[in-house]
């Protein structure tokens, strides 16, 4: 474990000691507690990125909301999009406990200064994508996020408990859609396989670079923000998913996938990190589109938000006059 860098004020060294002790004892740091600036900055970056991912993540599935092929599927998908907006709200609220505000974070998202999960820069091209996103993308998100329910920062940990429950529900619904399609027509089965072929590798890349290339992992683990390395979580996801794929009757597009008796785990191939780097750097299939949709919504809504603020100001003035 790396030594934690803490810069407690010289006049109050006990603050840093208390912080270290709370984290080491698996207790929670709360908003009013002293915390190292780097810890605060790491959390703001991570929580904001997570919130942005929820909001941008509404777009790929939202692409199919108006075309959902049954009213029941439409209701399920709409409820999911609504949950994601709700998750974005809790997460921005958790970030705000660290002294930033939502409007500022939104500006940082649309100006490209803060990131969101690169998975949402891939297009959704048929209705099975909705199911595969639920199964693989939400499944990968759950693997990443369940450990965050025990994150050392209280507001984030508590937000994650509720979010994980809902994500798990989305995952089961995604899988149920795929089961239905696999029992359906030949065309429906082809849609599922096509969607799996396109989403499998991007899902594996959701766990981030290999441990050797992940400079921040050690520090986040020392701070109990992160609990497992990227490679550990990726392996866990593969082990969990392979039997589900078999049950579903789809082929995962990895010729190197095989059971390793010795490790008691599945061996799998290397994702195309060059492609992922392109997507991260902004050249993914949908990067420009996702940000421009978010930017347009924000800008087109400015007059509405201004009106609400002005109305609230007038109301306050009237109350004052009474």
């Amino acid at each position: 474990m790396v030594p934690v860098q803490t810069e407690a004020p010289a006049e109050a060294p006990e603050l840093a000691e208390r912080f270290e002790a709370v984290v080491a004892a698996e207790q929670r740091i709360e908003p009013r507690d002293w915390m190292p600036e780097a810890y605060r900055a790491t959390l703001v970056r991570q929580i904001a990125q997570h919130a942005h991912s929820e909001i941008i993540g509404m777009q790929p599935e939202g692409n199919w909301l108006t075309r959902a092929p049954s009213l029941r599927r439409k209701a399920i998908l709409l409820a999911k999009a609504q949950d994601e907006a709700g998750h974005g709200l809790y997460l921005y609220a958790a970030a705000e406990t660290l002294g930033v505000d939502r409007a500022d974070l939104t500006e940082r998202l649309i100006s490209g200064r803060q990131k969101y999960s690169s998975i949402f820069n891939y297009p959704t091209l048929n209705y099975a994508d909705v199911g595969v996103i639920g199964w693989l993308v939400d499944g990968a998100a759950i693997c990443n996020q369940v450990p965050l329910c025990r994150c050392s920062y209280g507001p984030y940990a508590r937000a994650m408990v509720r979010i994980c429950k809902e994500e798990s529900f989305h995952q089961r619904q995604g899988y149920e859609l795929l089961m239905t399609l696999m029992r359906g027509t030949e065309a429906q089965r082809r849609m599922v396989q096509d969607a799996v072929d396109r989403w499998w590798w991007p899902s594996l890349m959701m766990f981030g670079p290999s441990d050797g290339d992940s400079p921040n992992t050690a520090r986040s683990m020392a701070w109990r923000i992160k609990r497992h390395t990227n490679d550990e979580l990726r392996q866990r996801f593969v082990d969990m998913t392979v039997p589900q794929a078999e049950h579903l009757g789809v082929t995962l597009p990895d010729p190197e996938l095989r059971w390793n008796e010795e490790r008691g785990s599945w061996d799998f191939g290397e994702p195309d990190w060059t492609e992922l780097q392109q997507v991260i750097k902004g050249n993914g299939p949908c990067n420009t589109q996702r940000i421009s949709v978010r930017k347009a919504a924000h800008e087109n809504g400015a007059w509405v938000r201004e009106a609400a603020a002005e109305y609230a100001r007038k109301q306050k003035e009237r109350e004052h006059d009474v």
Binding site: G62, A81, Q82, A85, L89, Y92, A297, R305
Partner: peptide, 18 residues
């Protein structure tokens, strides 16, 4: 539903979907 991802504020995303 067409408002989804285009609403003026996140609270409105939630409300309009509802």
């Amino acid at each position: 539903i067409e408002w989804c991802t285009h609403a003026p504020e996140l609270e409105e995303e939630v409300a309009l979907a509802n």
